[in-house]
Design a binder for these strands. Structure first.
Lengths: 200, 200, 200, 200
DNA sequence: AATGAATGAGGTTTCATTCAT
DNA sequence: TATGAATGAAACCTCATTCAT
């Protein structure tokens, strides 16, 4: 303890180590792309030995997938929180809230999204996209409540999510300039059209 | 030399060789992903030596980009041809024709699209997506003709293209079962909503 | 703690743990070779943690050596027991007994022998091979008793042991088919020739 | 050509490169053991890039096997040459010649033998040992000529080869001191006994 | 235009061993 | 006595790219 240099082999809860590795990987993937990031750089970033990586992940692809899942989980949690805060609102407002939250989250994490999901090969089949799934649930609820008319909520959810994603991508690639408010507003309008009927 | 066994080094027009390499690469990229396809496999597929690759492309990334351009060129040509065939039709029908052609093309080449464009890093700025650009032009024409009401045709084009893309992806990933006709019909409806007004 | 589920860290006598580790190692070395067996597999086989290995052996090489010693000890004990049972017999019969016991043991543990002794690097000098040493002692005794004529018992012992070993290897590699009795008989004949004189 | 430093990428006939790699590997395997020799060291020794190794061998194990085959081939060729030189001699003399040649070759390449064949896992089944096979052929010829009496030449060949091998190993491990002439003589005697009958 | 042997940096992964608990 | 997370050196191998022919 006299010298602070070699006290390294510090055991940490697996969960914590895993998080640290994922954080390091996320930063590096973002900075230099996935292909150009080496496992060695990730472990250096997390301040552990290279072998430690393989105690927690089976490969670089594995940590990449974990990052994707973590992102989606947080995204959905965010949407649910926003919806919860608007629990008293009308259905159209709920939809607007959903669009606003999703757009904001996308714009704030744009490169992350690109990095995580615009990669080949895609995560083979992690089931239906949970974000679109979340929208689908909202659409169904609104339809069941008689607020909207929709014959295929899943189709509509996927379509709208795709549209939103496309718009946000375009913005993130710098091909469009637009205020976030204006963007959100336009997206809300498109969503609104697709649920068919005004609330009241 | 007496027997024709070693007559292989047959020179071909550069254009032809280039095509053969691209075809081989396309098949392989589709089958195994870009990262896992080696230049050696591409040249083997095109039945040329490894060095020949670099006579026609400067790198693997280069052929990837060339593949993308070729695909988009053909896609847009297809859309234009479809539109030309419908030159006498009304605007809404033109839009329906566009959606039908785009959907068909996507479904027939879906994995190719994913492979070519869902890859990181994206070409930094090859201008706006030419397919969405094509749609935008259609929307503008329809608006200028007074058939539709749109305050931002580019936004709408990108949004609708994104939606279509999302739907088709979902289908291609096998997450949805639906007849192509029904799919097209639904997409047409969503597109129609977004152009605001019936042609009347 | 309420339930007896985590009562695992049960201390055992060192000797027992050592044996268990050696047994696990022996099985694995046989199955997959020494180089391809990891310490982790050995400890898993013995149902202890990895660190425990180093409480009982200083290295993988160490356990390998221990295995060799254990095998030789048992082998020699077996030979001595067989010889003891034949203490009243004549010298040629004793030799036949030795050959029979050695052949049997070899055939039953052949791959073990190969694994233990055909490995590089060999233990630099653990003295002469104790099994050949045992044979040498027998040859010397017979010679001293005037039963056999041998000018260099060690040479003969090593030669005969090598021959026996070669034959058994061949059989174990499946290259020869022969009944054990026939094999033993032939080996006995070769041994007999080499001790020079009939007992008469 | 002004500077001698960067004229490296010199293409050589595959056969030559292969030999150079094998020579480098042989030296290193001998010096430091197989396990401790890295492919990098082998290629450095052969003055080629690391990747070049894998153009000629699929793995370290592969070059090891190739070394073994090369050694056995040369060994057998040597035996055949010695026998050819003694083509006019009697059968017992031929046998003596065989033993002498085999012993000399073994002693001169002892560590090589150890390195190549005392390794686990053994080459799985490259058929019967060609050296013993060569001896077997000699024994059969002598028996067919009526010079010797042998009921199972293969058995005898394997046995004698094993014996010779055992003796030579012992010597090479430094456990025995003996002049080569004396050693050869004793081995010849043992071989002679095993072919049953004096020639005439 | 075409070849393909050679390059060599850099990748992923393994595993014997240590040591704080 | 026992644990097992952590280490980190080193191994094997791949492959985009070059260049002498």
């Amino acid at each position: 303890m006299s010298i602070a240099s070699k006290q390294r082999p510090r055991t940490k809860p697996a969960e914590e180590r895993r998080e640290e590795l994922m954080n390091a990987a996320e930063v590096l993937f973002l900075e230099k792309g996935i292909g150009s990031t080496t496992v060695g750089e990730i472990t250096a970033g997390a301040d552990v030995a290279k072998g430690t990586f393989y105690l927690h992940f089976s490969s670089k692809e594995d940590i990449h997938a974990a990052l994707g899942e973590r992102f989606v989980r947080a995204f959905v949690a965010d949407l649910e929180a926003a919806l919860a805060r608007a629990s008293k609102a009308g259905w159209n407002e709920k939809l607007a809230v959903w669009v606003k939250a999703a757009t904001a989250r996308f714009l704030d994490n744009g490169s992350l999204v690109n990095m995580l999901f615009h990669t080949h090969p895609r995560p083979p089949d992690d089931g239906p996209n949970p974000i679109a799934g979340n929208l689908k649930a909202l659409l169904e609820a609104g339809r069941d409540a008689g607020a909207w008319s929709l014959d295929d909520p899943e189709f509509t959810a996927v379509f709208l999510f795709g549209g939103l994603h496309g718009i946000v991508d375009e913005v993130l690639l710098g091909k469009k300039r637009a205020s976030r408010a204006r963007l959100t507003q336009r997206l809300q309008r498109h969503f609104q059209w697709s649920v068919g009927l005004p609330e009241a």
